[in-house]
């Protein structure tokens, strides 16, 4: 159907999971330590998260590791919101064995900004940051060997960006290297 039926009621707005304030000693400490660099400490569905300024991310994670016992790196990933001014949201997940608690550290960065690498704090950040670069094209400053990890080195485009079509893969690469026309 190309035309909307006028008789139909307007679609219900999507439900929103409200973020709750996150109380406790740890968010308190983070706010006193970093003041305006950590503008938000909240939780979604019982899962705490911290929003920080891009330049403070590595310092916050180092503080969490060295002072608050968040000693294990769980994941680094990103989400693309093309309509936002700072289009990428970088998400670091760390875990504390002593507290049995997981924490997300989120920061919003623009397409042109180069966040500092986390490899100096957690060695395991190496491959995770390479994957973020591979999929989103986010360049980490100071990374020991930032090049593609899952896709071929000569591949063009960053597939997990929202403006990258699922069918619009690097057809030229496929033809040159695999000798086939893509069936897509």
């Amino acid at each position: 159907m190309s035309e909307q039926q006028p008789s139909k009621a307007a679609p219900k707005p999507a439900a929103v999971m409200e973020s709750q304030p996150w109380a406790g000693e740890l968010p308190e400490n983070l706010r006193t330590q970093f003041s305006e660099d950590v503008p938000e400490t909240s939780q979604y569905a019982g899962q705490p998260y911290v929003v920080c300024k891009p330049d403070a991310a590595v310092a916050v994670l180092r503080y969490l590791k060295e002072r608050e016992q968040f000693d294990a790196l769980v994941d680094i990933t990103a989400v693309d919101y093309p309509s936002r001014e700072a289009r990428f949201e970088l998400i670091y997940i760390v875990y504390s064995h002593a507290r049995n608690q997981r924490l997300r550290v989120k920061t919003s960065i623009g397409a042109a900004s180069r966040p500092r690498t986390l490899t100096a704090v957690f060695t395991g950040a190496n491959w995770l940051e390479r994957e973020v670069y591979d999929m989103f094209g986010i360049v980490f400053d100071g990374h020991p060997g930032l090049h593609r990890i899952l896709l071929p080195e000569e591949w063009t485009g960053f597939p997990l960006r929202k403006d990258s079509s699922i069918l619009g893969m690097d057809q030229a690469w496929v033809k040159d290297n695999l000798g086939i026309e893509s069936g897509q």
């Binding site: 707005p13 999507a14 439900a15 929103v16 999971m17 569905a45 994941d75 990933t77 997940i93 997300r104």
Partner: peptide
Amino acid sequence: PVGEAYVSIEAPKGELGYFIVSDG
């Protein structure tokens, strides 16, 4: 609903996690 969650389980090989962002 609009929101996000990270849930992980103990898979045979280690922590298998899913971080899902919903736009509703």
